[in-house]
Design a binder for these strands. Structure first.
Length: 269
DNA sequence: ATGACTAATAGCATTAGA
């Protein structure tokens, strides 16, 4: 089983790149963030044509998450929960579409809990958006603890919008004031790891230096000015089966690419 | 230096991203 996460930055604008990536790398499960599409506009039939079954939690203009499974390879998906029950930072806007949780069953009947998240960015900080980010992380931790109690194999993956350590960014100094690496953001992420969740990419790359995002501006891609904010967190039984991780960097360099690259984790079954 | 790109929606710029 190969589980992947990809912040696609607009599903309409990215469909050609997304299609290529699915055909070339064929993940068993793909978590997508920032689909920036309402539920009605989601191209489910295009994914069906590629052999993928999807569930999605859309929103107009911003945010939006989806989970795809390789139906052609025998995977099935069943939604467990959408949303964490937390309102956005603006008065009366309601909940943003950032959380989608499902059970994924393989051809042999083995089920894995898969949680696709798009954690709030939190800039500018300090301010209400940063407060929202920290509150969202607290709610996420509560939900992850509940999943932990279920003792199911689980992966919580997506765009965490947190740079966990200084060696996860090309220049800690350049990013020092960003919400992505504030001590509060890092502490909230560290609490998830302290709870027992395994950071798959960090575990297999203990020296850091792995990037998953490069800004569109200032030639960041050409200069390799990136950082790691897309993470794959694993429950113990799933972590035991972890065989490899990777970042599909090459896809970041293509025409009309997302500013994020896909991140994947491979398991023994 | 509070910019530079990019996407979406709805203008004939603004918001948001990170």
């Amino acid at each position: 089983m190969k589980i992947a996460t990809f912040n696609i930055n607009g599903i309409k604008a990215r469909m050609p790149r997304l299609t290529e990536w699915l055909e070339e790398t064929r993940p068993s499960v793909a978590c997508l963030q920032e689909i920036k599409s309402q539920d009605d506009g989601f191209p489910a039939s295009d994914f069906e044509g590629l052999g993928y079954e999807a569930i999605w939690h859309g929103q107009k203009s911003f945010n939006g998450v989806a989970i795809l499974v390789d139906a052609k390879a025998g995977y099935q998906i069943s939604e467990v929960q959408r949303g964490l029950g937390i309102d956005g930072p603006k008065e009366g806007e309601g909940e943003q579409s950032r959380y989608l949780e499902a059970d994924v069953t393989d051809a042999n009947g083995h089920t894995t809990r898969v949680v696709c998240i798009y954690l709030p960015n939190g800039n500018p900080q300090p301010g209400p958006k940063f407060d929202y980010k920290i509150a969202w992380m607290a709610r996420l931790r509560e939900r992850m603890r509940a999943i932990w109690e279920e003792e199911v194999p689980a992966a919580v993956l997506g765009d965490y919008n947190v740079i966990p350590e200084d060696d996860d960014v090309w220049s800690p100094k350049a990013m020092a004031n960003d919400a992505l690496m504030q001590p509060e953001s890092r502490a909230a992420y560290a609490r998830l790891l302290a709870d027992g969740w395994t950071d798959a990419v960090r575990t297999l790359n203990p020296r850091g230096g792995v990037w998953t995002y490069w800004d569109y501006q200032s030639g960041a891609w050409q200069r390799d000015h990136g950082f790691r904010i897309d993470h794959v967190l694993l429950s113990p039984t799933l972590a035991d089966r972890l065989e490899a991780v990777g970042v599909d960097r090459e896809h970041r360099g293509r025409e009309k690419a997302s500013d994020h690259a896909p991140v994947w984790a491979l398991f023994s079954r």
